[in-house]
Design a binder for these strands. Structure first.
Lengths: 340, 340
DNA sequence: CTGTTAGCGCTTTCAT
DNA sequence: ATGAAAGCGCTAACAG
């Protein structure tokens, strides 16, 4: 069964109604200033009357560009990527590009797969999250000449265009805050690190700061999935250890809030009994009682910068391939000096 | 500058390498069982070797279908739509469809605009949120023969396919819970209602329950945007009123948590001084102290059902156009009997 | 400024 | 089971 039988209006129909050729219809659409104002009006009227929408497939077949950009994120669920993508869309939309969004659930194989699918749909350029990717992904993008930008990290070797911030430095900064309060027995609550360079860098930053301060090496507790429930379970495991830490550094806010839930149900007071920190400064963390100490990361700026870079490249303009943005530790009620 | 110069592999290249015609390449891809197993293998090897990805534009030009589905939501930011869309993608992905996501920021004009853009990109079918839409949207979809499904509501007149739940009943249910606790002086904290049938229905449900209980008509305070800060401001306005309500019904969890923030900063205790309720049962609300009383809505089920319906329609199978799902009031610590 | 023409890469008859 | 050939709707090159 063909559900598409109704599609009929083509440039030909518009041309007929306006009394011009299809070439003129095309010009009216793409380079209106090269068309006589009167003709232009006739064409536009015909377009409106027929509710004509050009066929993007035919267009991309011919012109080799679709004006679509793919944004491939780990998960829609995590509010951060939603905000970044939203900013990306906003900016690209203003320049006439559509955004095709896909998620890969932290599976780099699936990331490769969906990218292939989007290349098939003639997507012009890509935004990816993080620096860790399957080598075949880069080969594919190279093969098909698709510009792309990595986000949420800094590629210090400048092997690929990337806009983001230094996750290791962010981890270092918030760990330093906690160490500065006097904590020495510290645990790390870590998201799964496979194919997750952001998490890995953050943990590396935690460890570096702890080592520099001369404190004992931290226990690292891994969380199965980036979800409140999983983080809560992991925190319960931490709380059951004989040497309970006085501070817990989580690799992101979701992990940290999960830890808070565990403390509440176990009757452990924050920050009196244990200090907790997140990273990313989400609403989820900021609205807790006590409010979560975290790192404000450049969520929206990343999306905007990524969009601007891609637009520049698609239009053959100059662009800054590698951009490093700032972050800021936001101290709130979930951290305090350790007792005695 | 052409950034796409690298694109070269076509069905022709594959055909040449495999020693067959392009027709056979096409068959190998689309109807493999009609191709000799040996030939099939040769073609598949060639495809792999050349890293060939078919050109979707050409395909959709010829076959009139792109295997893309558009999901058009008010905002990526609000976690709910992200979850629904995620479920939609999951389900469609398993059937070989890609999802193109777009947001319209509660602007029905812009919704029409992006839909047009997606039709241009040959999107086969659509999911929209809510029942309120520009009449021209339906005309456009009709014109181009694109199946669509509305979500997050029930179209009791069955004018359009819709899967969701009864927002009015949900509002009625949670208001009844609050009334049952003995509250009579009630305020409503409402999201902007323009083009937002979900909110409107929820408020209608609140009002109906209040009227049925014989309580005085509620004050309705409008929030500028669906954002914590805006809701917090609105709640401060409520708290400044001479007759302070004993309960506040918010049209969703974000509004409710914003109200909680205002109470905290104003030293108003929840639930002793004021009870607060949300709708949608998000993590944001569930993790507050006290935890937010809310309505669990069928977030994931909606996405899955929408996907299943669209797949069925695209494949010409039977489908249930209108599906109504359940919800459930989740009572937590943010509601209690009013004092004295 | 506008029309004619060719062809983008693919699928689909129609032959064989 | 496979190939030859036509053509989907559009844009770019070339005339005029």
């Amino acid at each position: 069964m063909d559900t598409r039988t109704t599609r009929s209006r083509t440039a030909r129909d518009v041309a007929l109604l306006a009394g011009v050729s299809t070439a003129t219809v095309s010009r009216a659409l793409n380079t209106p200033d090269t068309v006589d104002p009167e003709t232009l009006k006739r064409v536009r009227d015909a377009i409106k009357k027929l509710r004509y929408v050009p066929h993007g497939g035919a267009r991309s077949l011919r012109s080799q560009r679709s004006r679509m950009v793919g944004a491939i994120v780990p998960s829609f669920d995590y509010a951060l990527y939603a905000r970044t993508t939203s900013a990306l869309q906003q900016c690209l939309g203003e320049h006439g590009y559509s955004v095709v969004l896909a998620e890969h659930h932290y599976d780099l194989q699936q990331e490769l797969q969906v990218t292939r699918q989007l290349i098939e749909h003639a997507v012009d350029a890509f935004m990816f999250v993080g620096l860790d990717h399957d080598p075949r992904l880069f080969a594919l993008l190279e093969d098909y000449g698709r510009p792309f930008v990595l986000t949420w990290g800094v590629d210090s070797d400048h092997r690929h265009p990337a806009v983001g911030f230094d996750n290791r430095a962010a981890g270092h900064a918030i760990a330093s805050h906690v160490l500065g309060l006097g904590h020495r027995r510290i645990a790390i609550l870590s998201a799964p690190l496979e194919g997750n360079d952001r998490g890995r860098e953050r943990v590396a930053g935690f460890r570096a700061a702890i080592a520099e301060a001369g404190a004992p090496a931290p226990h690292v507790e891994y969380v199965q999935r980036i979800a409140l429930g999983a983080a809560e379970e992991a925190m319960h495991r931490i709380l059951k250890r004989k040497q309970r830490p006085t501070a817990v550094l989580a690799t992101n806010d979701v992990m940290a809030v999960g830890a808070m839930l565990a403390c509440r149900s176990a009757g452990v007071r924050i920050p009196e009994d244990v200090s907790i920190t997140g990273i990313d400064n989400t609403d989820l963390g900021a609205t807790q009682v006590p409010a979560l100490t975290s790192v404000r990361t450049p969520i929206v700026e990343i999306g905007t910068a990524a969009a601007e870079q891609l637009i520049a490249r698609l239009e053959g303009k100059e662009f800054a391939a590698n951009q490093v943005m700032g972050f800021e530790v936001v101290v709130r009620g979930s951290t305090a000096r350790p007792k005695a």
